[in-house]
Write a protein that binds this DNA or RNA. Structure first.
Lengths: 205, 205, 205, 205
DNA sequence: TATGAATGAGTTTTCATTCAT
DNA sequence: TATGAATGAAAACTCATTCAT
């Protein structure tokens, strides 16, 4: 490899790394203040630069959230698909999906918060139609799992799976709003608590 | 009662009614599109008037949400306080609070959504410090109830009450995002499903 | 006609009049400074208001030129079509088209200048594709007329009609750059001079 | 001549050549898109470099047009002065000036277009006052020639020389907008067509 | 010589708010 | 009570220019 090639490789890599840094900063700010009310200036300041400078790296404020969300969703579905492909029973699949979700929150808390809080607003634009697609796929995944679990005797009969699905959808993700990585509880521990609660209830037996 | 007094009384009443109508419309729009991204013009249009006309009725966009939220919170705490004052056991109190919450969603869905989605943003302003107060009071209410329930053997030992509290807080209110009054399920029926799930878990026994 | 209907009619008319005034002002400024380098603020100032106020009347800077140009082109083609439909001989048609053009300059000088100077830039946007359409139609009109005139013996044989067409196209319209309505020469007088020059040449005979 | 001197000489020459290349590129882009709306980045890209790199060669975007235009005007006036100094009759002078103009278009089409399209905008800055000077000199040159020609019986009496001057000024240069070097017609052939048209008119005789 | 990252002034646009009618 | 025109502050975005490497 010539020096030239190593150079161009390293600058391309440096550039990608800088982008990633900036996106992480942007995600943090969007998550904590809300996408719509966050100004580009605020993101830039958090990154230690002036407002206009961000436009050297990104086309628009919109393209920043876009990149944040699509990267997150890609990774999320890869994780879910791995679980779904592993042939587990309905209870174990359930547990694995919830655990995966908490791991996503652990690793991509800002992206999860943005996904949770801003989807409604963003998905009015065609550019973000993939958010609706993802939601629909999510819905089908859980409904199928719940139906299967009821049929095979894992889950309680008489529950409204539509209600339970909505319950799960919201419940798991809103935890991103308060979970802090490195806090008292690990993501796996929280997943365990949630699973106990959901699977067995909170009543003493 | 003189004609004059009846007139001014009916005018004052008509005025209050008009305000209430406009607030209901505003709440609907704020809830469905998000407070920050909703323009005053959109609210006005939904009410069949022009942007400037709203300022005859209200001081500002902010005072509209303010009125919406404080009216809602007042009613909500009145309901909660009634439950808390009735001397029920921890399980029954739990059930009653959850049921009350779903009734709030049923009757004040837009206000609940606004409370849920916009509190973080609004409470950065001193004017809305009461939102933080309400949250803190909510937190204490549930933590005390959970602690009491664990002590008297109603709730499972070994659960992290901090986690459970957050779980309950989020879980109940997010239902406002999908619940439709007059839909397939009544508020009480949904409360029953939620309670089964939370108290007994979803596993078949 | 009720008072209400007359009112709404008069306000609609007042509004249309205001728009027309503002468009005339904008056209003046765009014409004298160039569309691209004119700021919305400059247009607003020329109209005695602040920058943002223009957006009460117009969607965007672009929509202002759009309206200016399309109104002008509509009127221009109406005038040309009247000439073309009147069954004149080729020499008289030629004279009438040139005279019409100078009348357009007389009445819509700013619009003509914008059309002349900014078409190249504007027509890169799909919104202004009608500028290209108009140019193409203009080209066909003149080429047909020149060809007919050569065939019927009106025009000199041996001229390159492509060159003459371009010559006419540019020559007539650039006069908008210097012609001032109410100056020493009337539009008809200038048209006469141009026609003498073009038809008979400037050499003494 | 030492190696050192030859090196620095060839370096200086190479540098001048690079500048000339870059200016030619810049002129092309400015001409085709318009100076004001062309970004430095676009010029740089057309020259195969990045935006900032141009600033090694030039002080500013403005200094680029400045150099392009002043070089062009210098050459143009040298050519005109040669004609004017050669003691030709008014008709021959007329023909020679028009022919020279088309040769300028042939050899410096981008510069001519910039001169034609951007003078109004540029000449608002003191730096480009020479554009106004040139225009004034141009005007005097033609008016004197026309007056002389009318006096000596070459040109038709009764024409408004002010109108004819403007006509000539615009007519000749706008050809830069469509002329392509190496196309169907040579510059001299186009000059011949223009001259026939202007001198003898387009009517058959 | 050229790059790439950043600057900062300026531009278009949005929108809560005001106010005369 | 409501309208409609305007205000003005703030937002997203653009781009000529700088400068360390």
């Amino acid at each position: 490899m010539s020096a030239r090639r190593r150079d161009s490789a390293s600058t391309a890599a440096a550039r990608a790394e800088r982008r990633a840094e900036l996106l992480a900063t942007a995600a943090e700010v969007f998550a904590s203040r809300g996408y719509a009310v966050t100004t580009v200036r605020e993101v830039a300041e958090a990154a230690g630069m002036l407002g206009g400078s961000l436009y050297y790296h990104f086309d628009s404020k919109e393209s920043m959230v876009d990149e944040i969300l699509s990267a997150f969703l890609t990774e999320m579905w890869a994780a879910y698909d791995r679980v779904l492909a592993s042939g587990l029973g309905s209870r174990e699949t359930f547990q694995a999906l919830v655990a995966e979700s908490f791991r996503m929150i652990d690793r991509h808390r800002p992206a999860v918060m943005i996904y949770q809080n801003e989807s409604r607003y963003l998905s009015t634009s065609p550019r973000f139609s993939y958010l609706l697609d993802s939601q629909e796929r999510f819905r089908q995944m859980w409904l199928e799992l719940l139906d299967r679990g009821v049929l095979d005797g894992t889950f309680r009969v008489g529950l409204d799976t539509g209600v339970i699905y909505r319950f799960l959808r919201d419940t798991v993700w809103v935890a991103a709003g308060w979970y802090r990585s490195g806090g008292r509880l690990t993501a796996d521990e929280i997943a365990r608590q949630y699973l106990t609660m959901i699977l067995d209830g909170i009543l003493s037996t």
